[in-house]
């Protein structure tokens, strides 16, 4: 039963990781738009130029220029 001293913290750590992942996803605005990505699947390869939601509102400048060129 001594193994519980390891398993309980391990279980907590695992759920901690899940919570961190959830917070990351929320911050990344993964839950904001549940519809558009479904349509984007239909685009030709190489046409899917949208960069997807950006981390913390950062703007990916380089890619933006690429897409415009």
């Amino acid at each position: 039963m001594g193994i519980l001293w390891v398993l309980v913290p391990l279980a907590l750590a695992l759920s901690g990781i899940a919570v961190v992942a959830y917070v990351w996803a929320w911050r990344n605005r993964q839950f904001e738009d549940m519809e558009t990505p479904a349509y984007r699947v239909l685009f030709e390869d190489g046409e899917a130029t949208r960069r997807g939601p950006r981390a913390n509102g950062e703007v990916d400048k380089a890619k933006g220029h690429e897409a415009r060129g």
Binding site: D33, E35, T36, R40, E47, T49, V59, D60, K61, K63
Partner: peptide, 25 residues
């Protein structure tokens, strides 16, 4: 989907617009 594609294309080809997000819903 075609509407999303068309609008995103138009946005990408606009001078001075660096990035965009389109929410279909």
């Amino acid at each position: 989907a075609a509407c999303v594609w068309l609008v995103e294309k138009l946005v990408q080809n606009c001078r001075g617009v660096v990035n965009s997000e389109l929410y279909f819903g």
